Structures are given as C-alpha cells and as structure tokens.
Amino acid sequence: MNYATQHHIGNYQHTRTETTTAIAPTVGRVCQLDAKTKGCKPSAERQAEIRTNSNATNGILKCTFLPKLKTAKSVQACQKTARDFHKSLSKLAEHHSIEPMQTQDFEFPYNIVLSMWDMETKVKRTNINWEGFKLIQDSKKTYFTSEERYNTGTTLYYIPVVPLFQILKDQKRKKTAQLLLSVCSYLYHIAQIPYYRQEESYLYWLYEMMNDWVEQDEETAETETNKRELRNAEYIGDKVEQKLFNLINLKVFEKRLNRFKSVDTFDSECWKIARNAFALYTEYPSENIFRNATLPEKDPYDNDENEIIGMEKYISFIADTKGWLYESLSDTINNEFNEYGAMEEPTISKQFDGSEIPTANLDFENRLFDLLNDLSGLLYEYKTIEK
C-alpha cells in the first residue's frame, strides 16, 4: 500500500499585473512610475481532498511567479528630474526678469508642461529675438537651453555705392556726402560688411560671371550697353572703396555729425541714419555683423554640404540696385538660393545648467540690420527725392 503524503492543492490563479496609463513624453523624457505587481493569492475555497500521484509534489515548480517591481529608483529619478527642472527654470526666469507661474499644486509631469508653456509665453512678450528653448536630460542632470535669433527673412541687405558716388559729385550735397562716407566707412571697417570689389566676396565672382557671359554674347547695341554698365560698376566700386578705406572718415565722424545742418528731407534722413550709425560705433566699437553668425543644425543624414546660405551672401556693398546688371544678378542669386534649405543668421544659445550664463544679446544685430535697411532704402530713392 502506498502511503504517500497527501497534498491539498488550492485553486491557483495567475494574477494579472496592474497596468498604468502611459503618458506621452511632452518634455524630454518623462519618468513613468512602475505598477506594483499583485502577488499570487490563494483561493479561500478548498477543494475536495484527492490523492495524487508521486509527481504532484513537483507541481509548484511549474508555477510562474511575477517578480516584484522596484519603484524606488523610478520615483527618485523623477524627483531629481523635477528638482533639476525647477532649478534651471528659476535661472531662466531670473535671466529674463520674469516671474514664473506657481505650479506646485499640479502633479508631475503636468507641472513641468505648464511651467514651460508659461515661460515660453512670457519670454516671447519681452524678447523679440526669442526662438525657443529645449529641456535637455543627460546622464547627470536636466536643464534648459535657449536660443535667440535675428530673423532676416528673405531680405538682401545690399548697399548700393553708385548713388553714393553721385552724391559725392553733387556740390550741393558735399556735407551730406561726407556724412554718408563716415557711415559707410564704419560699415566697411568696423561692421565688416563685405565689399563687392574684393575677391573674397560672394558678389565679386557673380560680377565676374556676368562679365564672362556678356563677353560671349554677340555684339549688339544692347550688349555694348551691358558692358558699359559692368565697366562703371568696376570703376565706381574702386573709387568709392578708396574713399571708404580712409580712416579719417571715422576720426571726424562725430564732428561731421554735430556740425551737419539739414536743408531738406533727404538731409534729415541722412542725419538720422548717421546718428544711429555713430551710436552703434560708440557703444560697440569693435563688434562686426558676423559676431554671432551661427549655422543651423544640420541633418546628420543629409550629405548635401551646400545647403546653407551664409550671411556673407546676402549682406554686402553692391554697385547698384537698379538696372539690367542688378536684375541679372538678382535672378542668379534667387535661383541659387532656391537650392538651399536654410540661412545662416545671428544666433545666441545659452545653457541654464548651473554654469555661468552669458549676458550676450542681439541688440547690436537688431540695430545694425535696421541701419542697413534704412541706408540702402535711402540710397535707392536718391534720384527720386533729389532736390
């Protein structure tokens, strides 16, 4: 007779793990808490006693027990993320003199999302160059990085020198011409605006290309006119550059500005432009337009090396912004720019990770681009409003 030990095997039920509702990461990586697993719970109901065979004692080995998930590490990680976040947010708010919204009554991660929305909205109101910010989470900490950018749009900041040359020839505009020479000398020497007669400039080679095309055309009255326009562009460009190169224009800039007497609207506009240029020269005596030139982030999977429009291509002195030559140049430039995917623009990036925060801003660029726009517009309209 087999007197094997009797076992009372209860109703074993495989308990389903409690699931949590997943929250889509809105900012960086949002820590998600793990669900606690319910253990195997024996049934209160007892089965009728039965005799099993000798292999029944191994039945327990066939049961699968779910591991108990550790939640402490996840909770600590989220707590550290929240602490780092608020510390960095406080630095960002202090830097921009903004009072952040109080979000402590909201649970994680909603407090983070709400805080970022609030900060984005408020900074945009006070900083015209605000491009946005990112929440970065590396292996050590979580912090903000911000970006400020001067948006140049699709503007070509080309300053024509032919009208300036004409003003220099006008005896009635002698003082006006001298004042404009000081302005353009500042742009040439200090702001470092490219000059189209310099071989390293973008426009120099476009003018050379135009010259080659005209030389290859059949001789007609039109081609002769085009050749003359090209020769004038070279001659006038060289003459004006000689005058701009003279540093005396900078030394007497303030004197010319203070002694200038406006006699008409054109003179008044010239004086305003000169005043703004001299203010920049005084406040930023050694800053140039490329000081914050930054290339946009490049797609690592894009092998096209010529996809960025450099600032030197859309900022320059030019012969003229009227006539056949300029129209031909514009067509060539537009066709080329249409092949590019992004533009290089003045940009400032800052990290709020506990390190020293730079005080740099785009005030210089804001005012300088306005100056270029006003000056090129004034010179373009010179013949129209000439007295």
Results as ranks from 00 to 15, higher is better:
2 N>H: 13
4 A>M: 12
5 T>V: 09
10 G>C: 10
11 N>C: 05
13 Q>V: 06
17 T>C: 07
19 T>N: 09
20 T>P: 05
21 T>C: 07
21 T>K: 11
25 P>G: 05
26 T>F: 12
30 V>F: 14
32 Q>G: 12
38 K>M: 12
38 K>Q: 15
42 P>C: 05
45 E>L: 12
45 E>V: 15
45 E>F: 10
47 Q>W: 07
50 I>D: 13
66 L>Q: 07
68 K>I: 10
70 K>H: 08
77 A>S: 15
82 A>C: 13
84 D>S: 09
93 A>H: 01
94 E>A: 11
94 E>Q: 11
96 H>D: 05
101 M>S: 09
102 Q>W: 02
106 F>S: 13
113 V>E: 08
114 L>D: 08
116 M>F: 08
118 D>K: 04
121 T>W: 09
121 T>E: 15
121 T>L: 12
125 R>G: 08
129 N>F: 09
129 N>Q: 07
129 N>P: 07
136 I>W: 02
140 K>E: 13
142 T>E: 04
143 Y>M: 03
146 S>P: 03
150 Y>R: 06
158 Y>W: 03
159 I>N: 07
163 P>A: 06
168 L>H: 09
169 K>P: 05
171 Q>K: 12
173 R>T: 02
174 K>N: 09
177 A>C: 07
179 L>R: 05
180 L>A: 02
188 Y>P: 06
192 Q>C: 10
194 P>W: 01
195 Y>T: 13
196 Y>D: 08
199 E>N: 09
201 S>L: 03
202 Y>A: 04
208 E>N: 04
211 N>Q: 07
211 N>F: 00
219 E>H: 04
220 T>F: 00
226 N>H: 04
227 K>A: 00
229 E>G: 01
230 L>H: 00
232 N>M: 08
233 A>G: 08
233 A>W: 00
233 A>T: 01
236 I>E: 05
236 I>C: 03
246 N>K: 05
249 N>V: 03
254 E>F: 10
254 E>K: 14
255 K>M: 07
255 K>E: 11
258 N>D: 12
265 T>Q: 11
271 W>R: 14
272 K>W: 03
273 I>R: 09
274 A>Y: 07
275 R>N: 14
275 R>Q: 15
281 Y>E: 02
284 Y>N: 11
285 P>S: 03
287 E>T: 15
288 N>I: 01
290 F>Q: 08
292 N>D: 12
295 L>M: 10
295 L>V: 08
301 Y>W: 12
302 D>Y: 05
303 N>C: 11
305 E>F: 14
311 M>F: 02
319 A>R: 00
323 G>K: 01
324 W>H: 09
327 E>A: 13
331 D>F: 01
331 D>G: 05
332 T>N: 01
333 I>A: 02
336 E>H: 09
337 F>I: 06
339 E>Y: 06
344 E>R: 09
346 P>F: 00
346 P>I: 00
346 P>C: 00
348 I>F: 07
353 D>M: 02
355 S>N: 14
360 A>M: 14
366 N>H: 05
374 D>I: 01
376 S>Y: 02
382 Y>R: 11
385 I>R: 11
385 I>D: 11
386 E>C: 13
